[in-house]
């Protein structure tokens, strides 16, 4: 499974929306359920799922899902 696909699964679970479509271009503005609270749940779930930890600087830099995918990819090596 590629990272975007795995990430989509996490988004669906956290946002409780099985119809959610997530692309590299998706931003928080595109997803109604993506607020500050679900963002925290999202980060926690991502860190747990991929068994890695992000610094706050990294998280703050993300502007869309594509950048999240790249960051995960870079960490996983």
């Amino acid at each position: 499974m590629d990272i975007l696909e795995e990430l989509t699964g996490i988004f669906k679970e956290v946002m409780e929306n099985d119809d959610l479509v997530v692309t590299r271009e998706t931003t928080a503005a595109d997803v109604e359920e993506w607020d500050s609270i679900s963002h925290i749940m999202l980060i926690t779930s991502i860190e747990k799922h991929f068994k890695l930890k992000f610094s706050s600087q990294e998280i703050l830099k993300w502007e869309n899902v594509g950048q999240m995918v790249d960051a995960i990819q870079a960490k996983k090596g």
């Binding site: 500050s36 925290i40 749940m41 980060i43 926690t44 992000f54 610094s55 706050s56 998280i59 703050l60």
Partner: peptide, 15 residues
């Protein structure tokens, strides 16, 4: 999680 504490005033980790 100190990052969540600083950015979101989360005094305890989500879990």
């Amino acid at each position: 999680d100190w990052s969540q504490y600083v950015h979101s005033d989360m005094h305890f980790s989500l879990d």
